[in-house]
């Protein structure tokens, strides 16, 4: 059953100099209880998609086109009240910077209780506190720390508490935006394991956003690779991770493996950090300047979607 269906979503930012397209014609679908990974370097628009789904974009962002169908109704058409109802209750988030995601002058427990009670005012504070205790046990934080302040938590604890809060309303979908990036490797591992376990246990759908293809491959059923606002390759975990076809995915993977010491870095043209720019000629391949397989025709002709299998697709004219 399809939980979330995104159709032709485009999001642009207005800057002093003009508008910049951050998400360009993105479509994907997510089934209930499944997990989808969005991979790409910083600035490729993956966070913008995550924020766009809950309409949490900054004021200068503009959703130019598309539809975000959640259980069949379009979130982009929601009224403010309906949107506030949807947030956290149906779709919650795990944030990138757990350090700053907590209000520093309120106790952590109170902030979680607030999330519970805002969506169900009928629950008493004491009952909500019991709920928080259960959540804390689930994410392995001692329950006597519930009413501590955020600065008294370690980085990993803050992130686990965020996970607890994300679960507090039993949502159908959690958007996890780089949930482990700011943490050290061991804590990172714990967090990833926790997310995996919780996903299995509650059968919650997850959109997992990361720049680290290895982490994404560890957690997700499906992987979507983004470059300069576009999806360039999408498919099942095994397909994308083991048999990548798009040159960008290949270079991402090769740099990942190099860090693990398995493969030598092959092409010199490692992808540079990208920002979707306004001067990009419409239609042509964004990866062209860094592409080892580029041919002259790439500069003039638009890339085409190539189906490698029923689930595996890539946006490149030369992928088989």
């Amino acid at each position: 059953m399809t939980l979330l269906q995104v159709n032709n979503l485009s999001i642009a930012y207005q800057t002093r100099t003009g508008t910049a397209l951050a998400v360009d014609d993105v479509s994907f679908a997510l089934d209930k209880g499944k997990s989808l990974g969005i991979v790409g370097e910083s600035g490729c628009g993956k966070t913008t998609i995550g924020m766009g789904l809950l309409r949490l974009l900054p004021d200068n962002a503009l959703i130019k086109q598309g539809a975000v169908l959640f259980k069949g109704s379009d979130i982009l058409e929601f009224s403010t009240a309906a949107l506030q109802d949807l947030r956290w209750k149906k779709i919650s988030m795990i944030f990138q910077a757990a350090m700053n995601a907590w209000n520093p002058v309120q106790r952590v427990g109170d902030q979680i209780i607030e999330a519970i009670r805002i969506h169900d005012p009928g629950i008493s504070r004491d009952k909500a506190k019991l709920e928080v205790e259960k959540l804390y046990e689930m994410v392995d934080i001692p329950t006597n720390r519930i009413f501590d302040y955020p600065h008294e938590y370690s980085g990993g604890m803050k992130q686990r508490a965020i996970i607890a809060m994300a679960l507090s309303c039993r949502p159908d979908l959690i958007i996890a935006d780089e949930p482990s990036t700011a943490l050290d490797v061991i804590v990172q591992d714990q967090i990833i394991k926790k997310i995996k376990a919780i996903q299995k246990k509650f059968n919650i759908a997850i959109i997992f956003i990361s720049h680290d293809i290895g982490v994404v491959a560890d957690v997700c059923h499906d992987i979507m690779v983004m470059y300069k606002g576009r999806i360039v390759e999408t498919g099942k975990r095994e397909e994308v991770f083991v048999e990548p076809v798009h040159p960008y995915t290949k270079s991402l993977l090769s740099s990942y493996l190099t860090l693990d010491g398995v493969l030598e870095f092959q092409n010199e043209s490692a992808p540079k950090s990208c920002l979707t720019s306004t001067d990009q000629a419409p239609g042509t391949c964004g990866f062209l300047p860094n592409c080892p397989q580029a041919e002259p025709s790439c500069a003039s002709e638009a890339p085409q979607w190539q189906a490698i299998s029923e689930t595996h697709k890539a946006l490149c004219r030369f992928c088989k």
């Binding site: 930012y13 207005q14 800057t15 910049a20 628009g45 913008t48 920002l275 979707t276």
Partner: peptide
């Protein structure tokens, strides 16, 4: 303090 030149 400048008017936001928002990061993308």
């Amino acid at each position: 303090l400048r008017k936001e030149e928002q990061k993308v």
